[in-house]
Write a protein that binds this DNA or RNA. Structure first.
Lengths: 235, 235
DNA sequence: TGGAAAAAGTGAGTTTTGTCAGTTTTTAAA
DNA sequence: TTTAAAAACTGACAAAACTCACTTTTTCCA
C-alpha cells in the first residue's frame, strides 16, 4: 500500500520534478542545449547562500539538502531535493542572491543550465512559465506546513514526521517491496528536525525500543509507518 | 533613520504590493474590470484553509493575518499582509485548495477579483507573469527565513524579531516621526511568535522593564529598536 | 458611561529541550 | 585487515518553555 492513502505526502514535497516532465520536447531541448554534467561527491556544496546565481541545476541522480546556517553556525535544512528536481531557480527569478545553500547528501550527478538559457526558455515557453508558477505556489504551501510544524510541534512529533517524509525520498534508491533504508547522518537528521543531534539519537532509541524502527549501523529501517503517523499527530 | 540601514527588513516582507504597482495601466485595468469591494470587520475571515478559491483578493486598506490551525486548534500566523498586497493567488496558481486561512486584523477594505479575470490577465500580461514569478520566488526566501527562525531561535529572540517586523507594518497607520503603536492582541502576537500567550506577556514585561518598549493598554510602542535588533541575534 | 465580558498579566510547578562531558561503535583509509 | 578518525550514543544537569489556576486591567457596547 502506498503512503498516499494514509498520509498527505504531497503537502511535504515540492513536486519540482514535474516542471521538466511536463515540458514539451522542443522546450526541454531549448533549456538543455548547453547543459554541462558533473559528479558531486558526498558533502560537496553546489551553491552558497548569499552569492549570485549564474544558472540553475538539475539533479540527474542523487539527493541534495537545501539549508541555511544561522549566526551561531547551526544548520537548518529547509528541504531535501531528490533525483529529477531542479535547484536554484528562486534566486534567478527573484533577481536576488541564493536564499539558501545546497549540498549533496550522497554521490550525485548534477547538470548545470546557464542563466541565459533558462531565461531565454522562460521567454519562449508558455508551459515552463505556467509550471514554474504552479510549482512555486505549491512550494509556498509546503513551506507554510513546515513553518507551522517547527513552531508548534515537539521534537518527537517532528522527528516522526520527517522520518515519514524522508523515507519516501529514499524509496527511489530501493526496489519496490524491499525494505527502505534511510541513510542519513544523525547530524543531518537533527538539521532536518531542528534540534540537537543528542535529541535525535534519544528519540530514535525510544522508537527502536517501541519496535517502530530498527537500525543497521547508521541506516534506519522503518518497520511501522502507521505508528510514526500517529506520533506525528498531523491532521 | 530608516530601518533598512540597520536591519534587512526585505527578507521578512513579501513585497506583493509591487505586483500591482509595476503593472502597466492597461493590464491593471483588465485585472480590475470586475472587482468588487467590501468592508471587513476586525476578526472577519476572508477565506478558509482547505477550501477552493474562486478568485483573488486585494487589500485596499487594512491588515490581514494568514494562518494555519493545527490539529489541537492552535493558530500559527504565517504572514501578516498589509495595505496594497494581494491575497489568495497561491491556491489559484497551484490549482489547489487554500494552503492557509486569512482573517483581517483591523477594519479593512478588500476587493475581490474573480478567478476568470485573474487567469485571463495572466494569459495577456507578460509583466504580471514575470512579477508573480519574482514575488513567489522572493516569498520562498522569506518563508525559508521564518522556518529557520522558528526551528532555531528562542521565544525571546523570536519575539524581538517579530516586533521589529510587525512595527514596520504599523508605520503605515501613523505619520512619519510619530511614535508607532503596534495594536495587536497578545493572542495574535503569540500566534505570530509561535508560543503561548503567557510567554509573550512575560517577555514583553522584561522588555518594558529594560526600557526597550512601553505599553498603552494593549498597544506596544517600541522605544529602542536597536536593542531589539541585538536581542533578535539575527545576522 | 457603568458594568459585564474579554483580554492581559502573574506565579508555581511540570515537562521538554539544550548542553556538556564523556564512552562505544562505525566508517573508511592505509 | 588493521586502526585512527569520525560518528553515534549515553547520562546528568541546566535552561527554556509550557500548562494551569488565578487576579487585575482594559475594552466595548447596552
Amino acid at each position: 500500500m502506498s503512503i498516499k492513502g494514509i498520509f498527505p505526502i504531497d503537502k511535504w514535497d515540492f513536486e519540482t520534478d514535474s516542471i521538466l516532465t511536463d515540458l514539451p520536447a522542443e522546450d526541454l531541448a531549448l533549456l538543455m542545449v548547453n547543459k554541462t554534467e558533473r559528479n558531486y561527491k558526498k558533502g560537496e556544496i553546489i551553491f552558497w547562500e548569499g552569492t549570485y546565481p549564474s544558472g540553475i541545476f538539475f539533479i540527474q541522480n542523487g539527493k541534495v539538502k537545501k539549508y541555511k546556517l544561522d549566526k551561531d553556525g547551526r544548520e537548518q535544512i529547509i528541504y531535501v531535493a531528490n533525483t529529477g528536481e531542479l535547484l536554484g531557480y528562486h534566486a534567478l527569478l527573484a533577481e536576488d542572491r541564493y536564499p539558501d545553500s545546497a549540498a549533496v547528501l550522497e554521490e550525485s550527478k548534477i547538470a548545470f543550465i546557464p542563466k541565459t538559457d533558462f531565461l531565454h526558455s522562460l521567454q519562449q515557453s508558455v508551459v515552463l512559465n505556467r509550471k514554474l508558477l504552479k510549482t512555486l505556489s505549491h512550494e509556498f504551501a509546503v513551506l507554510a506546513n513546515s513553518l507551522s510544524m517547527f513552531a508548534r510541534k515537539s521534537v518527537r512529533e517532528r522527528l516522526a514526521l520527517q522520518l515519514i517524509v524522508i523515507r519516501e525520498k529514499y524509496k527511489i534508491n530501493f526496489q519496490a517491496g524491499m525494505p527502505v533504508e534511510i541513510n542519513m547522518s544523525r547530524e543531518d537528521l537533527a538539521s532536518l528536525v531542528g534540534t540537537a543531534r543528542e535529541n535525535v539519537v534519544r528519540v530514535l532509541t525510544e522508537f527502536k525500543q517501541d519496535g517502530i524502527l530498527e537500525t543497521k549501523g547508521r541506516k534506519i529501517i522503518v518497520q511501522d509507518v502507521n505508528r510514526l503517523i500517529e506520533i506525528a499527530n498531523y491532521k
